[in-house]
Design a protein around this nucleic acid. Structure first.
Length: 507
RNA sequence: GGCGCUAUCGUCUAACGGUUAGGACGGAGCCCUCUCAAGGCUUAAAUACGGGUUCGAUUCCCGUUAGCGCUACCA
């Protein structure tokens, strides 16, 4: 009896844990976040980071990631910009579960506007667009709150003028009671603002198209978005959104605002002012690895708090949380000479160094080929160990390993061939000795090592003095990957030919 | 102008109210070494300012200053 009682209790405990797990699974299914770009430019690095944080949060908790194109600004939207957004996200390898386009949901937005109007919580403003006195007729020298007289127009008159076809803007009737609007932000904490400081913002433009505020809230409500994760530039807009949700009778989502990414001079990143460094595709084209770029972006405004820097996407998913997001804007460093942030470069190099050689080779092949060189996968595989820890960007393969790809070395100054503490005569002696040595040496790293060191000893010079002219003869410059491996990969024939060229240059 | 937000090395950041204020990038130097990298070691470098509260403040409160955001029929 006792035993079965214990069993029953255990069973009960098990059932209760199952219920808890089910409940948490259920709430995760209900966790829905969205990235809502407006297609008025290419995918911006700041937008990319916003996408990433949303994505990490969704993936961390088994929620749903939604891509919503906020294209209510008809004049400024472009198809090209939309493509750029997709292109950027595709490169980053980030996916989403549902996709919507705001312009296809206008009916829903208008419906919400109408319901707010029907409740008397919005009103028609018949002030002609761009009235000169609009800005000045506000309250007591402070902010503009509404156009005079418009709030007071009776419902009957308003309806009549609307039916008569008089154009109007639908404005939210912000309560003038001095109420404090409050919400809790997962990053910035408790926020409050008096309705006295919130103007009667527009819901519908005079052409009937919803504004951002309305469309965004209507869609967030309809799509059952549970967490709105977006740039801090929307922090003060959130009070308006709270008002809209309340007026529409729906529960507001949770909010998490992100500190902004800014330029070294403290201004916000803009294409006009800062050029291509603000576009995600620029990083792709320069040879950043998507995982490294994501890693870099995550470290701007967020920290795992345990001194980790290099993290894979999987690690990021595991440790991401709003608690790690800080509140001050983060500078992304770049100058005219160095367009990429040094830390981004370092992180990219770090990711490249820890990559499997085969994977790196696969990434490098198209870079080399698109530069007009032909190279076999076998050759590339041999080159990898020589360059892997020497490149920061994929495209660096072209400057670090160029001499592997060309048949004819680009011209170089023959003075480069002369070693330190030596003269042209020494260089010549070295190269002639090298020619002789390499003609017969075993063409492996160790074989070359032994043969060339022996040759140096034979000439009575230091190994370094021996290697330097050979390196320049073979690579065309003084800084290059380690010599023996390089010679081995290049092969006897090429090496001998290049050394002969060097000798004739010296003569 | 009004309102809101923010403030730690050059930059990204860490620090239950008690630390010699930590790490990373970048800089400088040394070691390793066939050059370049990589790696190892060392080093310079910060709590914006002024008041409180407290035995004790980078941390909490107030003010100043600075920066940013919003203040559109942009998003």
């Amino acid at each position: 009896m006792i035993a079965s009682g214990i069993h029953a209790q255990r069973a009960r405990i098990r059932i209760s844990t199952i219920i808890v797990q089910a409940a948490s699974l259920y709430s995760n299914l209900m966790l829905r976040v969205r990235f809502a770009p407006s297609p008025t430019g290419f995918l911006h690095v700041g937008s990319a980071r916003t996408f990433i944080f949303n994505w990490l949060y969704a993936r961390r908790h088994g929620g749903t990631m939604i891509l919503r194109i906020d294209d209510t600004d008809l004049e400024r939207n472009t198809e090209q910009s939309l493509q750029s957004i997709f292109e950027g996200l595709e490169w980053l390898g980030l996916d989403w579960d549902e996709q919507y386009r705001q312009s296809e949901r206008l009916a829903l937005h208008r419906q919400m506007a109408e319901s707010i109007l029907a409740k008397g919580l919005a009103y028609r403003d018949f002030t002609p667009a761009g009235s000169a006195d609009e800005a000045e007729t506000g309250h007591s020298g402070g902010a503009w709150l509404s156009n005079p007289g418009q709030r007071e127009i009776s419902a009957e008159e308003s309806d009549r003028r609307a039916v008569a076809g008089e154009p109007f803007v639908l404005r939210f009737r912000v309560p003038r009671t001095g109420e404090e609007i409050r919400f809790h932000d997962a990053v910035y904490g408790d926020q409050s603002k008096s309705t006295d400081d919130i103007e009667d913002f527009a819901l519908l433009r005079s052409n009937g198209v919803p504004t951002y505020h309305l469309a965004s809230c209507a869609d967030d409500a309809d799509l059952r978005i549970s967490h709105v994760v977006r740039g801090q530039d929307h922090l003060t807009n959130t009070f308006k959104h709270i008002l809209i949700f309340r007026a529409a009778g729906v529960e507001a989502p949770q909010f998490a605002h992100l500190p902004l990414l800014i330029a070294p001079d403290g201004s916000k990143l803009s294409k006009r002012k800062h050029g291509p460094v603000v576009s995600v595709t620029t990083y792709r084209d320069a040879g950043f690895l998507p995982q490294a770029f994501i890693n870099f972006l995550c470290l701007l405004g967020w920290s795992p708090k345990d001194d980790r820097e290099k993290m894979t996407r999987e690690e990021l998913v595991q440790v991401f949380s709003f608690e790690g997001i800080n509140r001050s804007n983060a500078v992304i460093n770049f100058t005219e000479e160095n367009p990429f942030d040094a830390k981004a470069l370092w992180l990219n190099a770090e990711h490249i160094r820890t990559m499997a050689a085969a994977e790196l080779a696969e990434q490098l092949m198209p870079v080399v080929e698109s530069a007009g060189f032909t190279i076999t996968p076998e050759k590339m595989a041999q080159i990898i160990p020589l360059i892997q820890e020497r490149i920061h960007l994929l495209r660096d393969v072209l400057t670090v390993g160029d001499f592997f790809f060309v048949t004819e070395l680009p011209p170089y100054d023959s003075a480069e061939l002369i070693p330190k503490k030596g003269d042209a005569a020494l260089a010549l002696r070295v190269l002639e000795k090298a020619l002789e040595t390499l003609a017969t040496a075993e063409f492996t790293h160790d074989g070359l090592d032994a043969a060339l060191r022996a040759a140096a000893e034979n000439l009575g010079i230091k190994a370094g003095q021996m290697f330097e002219p050979i390196r320049v003869a073979v690579c065309g410059r003084k800084t290059a990957p380690p010599l023996f491996g390089t010679l081995e990969v290049l092969g006897r024939e090429t090496c001998l030919a290049r050394i002969e060229r060097a000798i004739s240059k010296l003569k």
